[in-house]
């Protein structure tokens, strides 16, 4: 396993694979919330979020406004970093490694190379090994997840369909990734070579997944979670934690909904708790039916 055997060194070493992947391990069982202001970041922290994602517009507004979606204003990211004591993540465009360099310079704790922003490179993702700051990337299937890990991603999330408040795509991607992993576990040594070819992923990573029965990095769910039950659904399907984007701050009572999603993620297998926290949350975000969404407006198609 590439993360488990670095040469022990005497002097402190930053930015190692273990430190990057280990950071995501600490977020497990938690909820990471999209926020656009320091005030929202505080509400998220108060509710028990394990981290916040600082961005200028939540995906639902990016959809509504159109235009090119870019990395957020550094002042705005700094404002959020100053407002909370929990980790702060921020998004760069796919392949826009200079935006990523800026985010690293700002001191964000994790960079999301995200399909929610307008891609800057339609062929290449950023080389994530080149950074001290760890990266999370979206994936719709195992091959895509392993290609991102090969590029240096230290955490994977399902893409889902951000800004829709519709969990259907997140379910599709989580089931796909988990099913792909299960299938690998049934193959013999010889068959893994062809599996790697079919997955379009490096053989070493394919073999590692087949042995471990899981990804070598943490797997979260993202894209369309709007209710405590949605979060618990993703956890029961095998997510190790949940990103909630527009679902919280596009709802009627964000503070209450945020706390409820956190509790439902911890007790994802206890319907009594989920029922209790789901009461009196007010309006959920309205949501979009994904089957009426034109192909060109599907963020999950971005990245390859």
């Amino acid at each position: 396993m590439s993360s488990s055997s670095p040469t022990p060194s005497q002097s402190p070493e930053t930015g190692t694979a273990r430190v990057k992947r280990g950071m995501a391990e600490q977020l497990k069982g938690g909820v990471i919330m999209d926020v656009v202001t320091p005030e929202q970041a505080k509400i998220a922290e108060d509710a028990g979020a394990v981290a916040v994602m600082a961005l200028e517009r939540v995906p639902a507004d990016i959809r509504k406004d159109g235009g090119v979606a870019r990395m957020s204003d550094p002042d705005m990211i700094e404002g959020i970093i100053d407002a909370v004591s929990i980790p702060v993540m921020a998004k760069s465009r796919i392949g826009h490694f200079v935006e990523a360099q800026v985010l690293q310079a700002l001191g964000v704790d994790y960079i999301d190379e995200s399909e929610v922003l307008t891609p800057a490179d339609e062929v290449n993702h950023s080389d994530k090994w080149a950074f001290t700051t760890p990266f999370v990337c979206g994936a719709t299937n195992l091959g895509e997840a392993l290609r991102r890990i090969a590029e240096g991603a230290a955490m994977i999330r399902s893409k889902g369909e951000a800004g829709t408040g519709n969990v259907v795509e997140a379910v599709r991607h989580m089931r796909q990734i988990r099913a792909d992993i299960r299938r690998l576990s049934t193959l013999d040594e010889t068959e893994l070579f062809v599996a790697a070819k079919n997955l379009q992923a490096p053989y070493e990573l394919v073999k590692e997944v087949a042995t471990l029965g899981k990804l070598p990095v943490v797997l979260f769910s993202a894209g369309g979670v709007a209710t405590p039950a949605d979060a618990a659904l993703m956890m029961q399907l095998g997510a190790e934690g949940v990103f909630v984007g527009s679902g919280i701050f596009k709802s009627g009572d964000p503070a209450k909904r945020a706390a409820a999603v956190v509790k439902a993620t911890t007790f994802y297998d206890d319907p009594d708790v989920i029922a209790k926290v789901s009461r009196g949350l007010g309006e959920a975000m309205v949501g979009i039916n994904c089957d009426t969404l034109p192909e060109t407006e599907r963020y999950a198609n971005r990245g390859w």
Binding site: P8, S9, P12, T16, M23, G107, D109, T133
Partner: peptide
């Protein structure tokens, strides 16, 4: 912050 996270013997 995370960029200062490290490993040491």
């Amino acid at each position: 912050r995370q960029n200062d996270s490290f490993e040491a013997m």
